[in-house]
Design a protein around this nucleic acid. Structure first.
Lengths: 347, 347
DNA sequence: TGTTAGCACTCTCGATGGGTGAGTGCTAAT
DNA sequence: ATTAGCACTCACCCATCGAGAGTGCTAACA
């Protein structure tokens, strides 16, 4: 990405800012009226140059200019001044979180709602996954003659349940004994340790352990993610989604779990707030959209991703600060719960 | 709703069927071509009559006729022959359910997916709520110095968790003892019995019980419902939602939990498959849509609702048989789990 | 050499208007 | 009661046209 002259930067910045608010192609007159002391003709020349360089695009002759993917990227990386979310909004958000009490699921749902509301885009929050889950506790409850409920609690408070069809009727007493034995044996154990742990006492214990290992495996990989969504309606108000085809496209994107999961978990690898503009050539489904994602959680313990999705014409500065703030806030909240005290460095 | 002559019924039925497939206003020529042995002029007369009676509507002079809300209702109540879902589709669906094993959450997610796919509309499934939940088991796990995780299991296998901020540090041993005591005391108890149960041993136990009662209350009322949605994309393909305003309307409807929850829980009161056509004057948000809902679950034990949402121009027969079949199937599956053996009569 | 005024040019957008065709309601004959 | 015939209506398509916005180019200017 080449260096632009200061005036080109100025023009590009103004075009982006104007287009983001008006959603109309921006003409040279409009820009020169912003008071940068040159005539529209000069601006026209600069715009022509910026178009040659690929930062702007002209829908047709005699229309104004529109930023390209590349233009937005330059804007985000070099021109935009990063700012924090206004303190009063921060306060409002914090207040909402403290109102709901200590409830992980509620937090994530609320995070999605807050993100959607504050950024006026669609919001996404994944549930937490552990790096390497360790078993905290398990419980076996008899449901019916040959059916039991297995409840698995991981270090850090993730809870999962699973119905088990047993080969034969087993009494609650036996189940309790088995659970106690396994709890003594495996408290704090990782998937690997559980898999390699051979219980000699009987094959029933072994079976249970296999199921437990399976469940933990599912949590450690991304398979078991929950996905909280909100604010789809916001982006359908954007003019770029008046075309039914585009609207369907983005609805499909947000409804298809697999796609989003892949995308978000890939983002987790990197860390820090990331801005994906127009699919970056890799995700064709995102070609009309921009996505702003950040990991959240507690380093070394649990991690999730959250972000907002909107049209490429997005108020990046505001969206980024919103995502950064909410990610930080959620991380703090979870940090209070997880034993590990070190928190994710605010990205 | 007055009686129509046999020929009027025939004409109305054909108009509905034709319009459902073509989405175009239906002309008299088209109807007479279906081979009912009268000329288009006669059909025109009948259509004029049906319009006067409020069963058909003409978008403008020189257009064909379109069924009204009332027309659809007559069709559903009198003209449509109810049929079962084709056996091969039944088999496919059953197969999918048996593939995922015994996992309540997966079942409901799958039910939504199957409904959406089979009816080619949007699908809704609520999680189960108990009529009167009874406590099965609780577990207290220390998370941090003054924070504990409460896990509550209800009769029937519903599991809920809740973080507790304690006033002072409590050891795991103490927590375990408390949990044991409360388990002995309250196994099988309803909300009411828990609320009125005064534990003398100490106020800590009392606090825990209050939280438990609160959680059970939330489950018994509709507050704690989960909502599984799928197939939103399907209805955006329908021509009535090409108008952005309508599309937004339906997206909003499906995204707003509160609205859907109210709607679905109200449906639970009645029982049996219900067809709501065009909001029936009560739900303005549904004015362009039809909703087909059925309760499912185990009578006297747990109950939920599921259904499909589509444009008024909906293949009612197919949609109804799909909903009925999936509701029955889910009920059977849950019936296997819940102690009560009696199942909900297939509606 | 960079800037700017002037100008011809291009292209979208909205309004206008006639032609086409589908479907109707009415009437008179069967 | 049914139906053929017919005049009529109205959405839809398409071509035309003028207005307006914004451009690129050129020539004059600092």
């Amino acid at each position: 990405m080449e260096e632009l002259t200061p005036r080109q930067q100025l023009v590009l910045g103004l075009v982006v800012r104007d287009y983001v608010t008006t959603a109309q192609p921006v003409g040279s007159k409009t820009i020169s009226d912003y008071g940068l002391g040159v005539s529209s003709a000069t601006v026209r020349n600069e715009m022509g140059r910026l178009e040659e360089l690929g930062y702007l695009h002209q829908p047709h002759t005699s229309a104004g200019r529109v930023p390209t993917e590349r233009g937005y990227r330059y804007f985000v990386e070099r021109l935009m001044r990063e700012s924090d979310l206004p303190v009063d909004e921060q306060r409002t958000i914090r207040h909402q979180f403290h109102q709901v009490g200590v409830d992980l699921e509620q937090w994530m749902r609320l995070a999605a709602s807050v993100l959607a509301h504050t950024s006026r885009s669609a919001a996404l929050v994944t549930s937490l996954k552990t790096e390497q889950s360790r078993m905290r506790h398990l419980e076996l409850l008899s449901i019916r003659e040959a059916m039991a409920l297995l409840i698995l609690v991981l270090e850090g408070g993730i809870v999962r349940q699973q119905m088990l069809n047993l080969e034969e009727a087993v009494s609650q007493d036996t189940l309790t004994q088995v659970a106690n034995r396994l709890n003594d044996l495996c408290a704090g154990a990782s998937v690997h340790r559980i898999r390699t742990c051979k219980v000699l006492v009987g094959s029933f214990e072994q079976q249970i352990l296999d199921v437990v290992a399976e469940m933990m495996q599912r949590i450690d990989s991304q398979i078991d993610l929950h996905l909280y969504r909100d604010g789809l309606i916001n982006i359908l108000h954007q003019p770029e989604f008046l075309v039914p085809e585009s609207a369907r496209n983005v609805v499909h994107l947000l409804e298809d779990r697999t796609l989003l999961e892949d995308l978000l978990t890939e983002m987790l690898e990197v860390g820090g707030v990331q801005v994906i503009i127009g699919g970056e050539g890799r995700w064709t489904e995102l070609s009309e959209c921009s996505l702003i994602v950040s990991p959240y959680g507690v380093t070394g313990e649990v991690q999730g991703a959250l972000g907002v999705l909107g049209p490429m014409r997005m108020p990046y500065s505001r969206a980024i600060s919103t995502v950064r703030y909410v990610a930080g806030l959620l991380s703090d909240l979870f940090g209070d719960i997880y034993a590990g005290t070190e928190e994710l460095p605010t990205p």
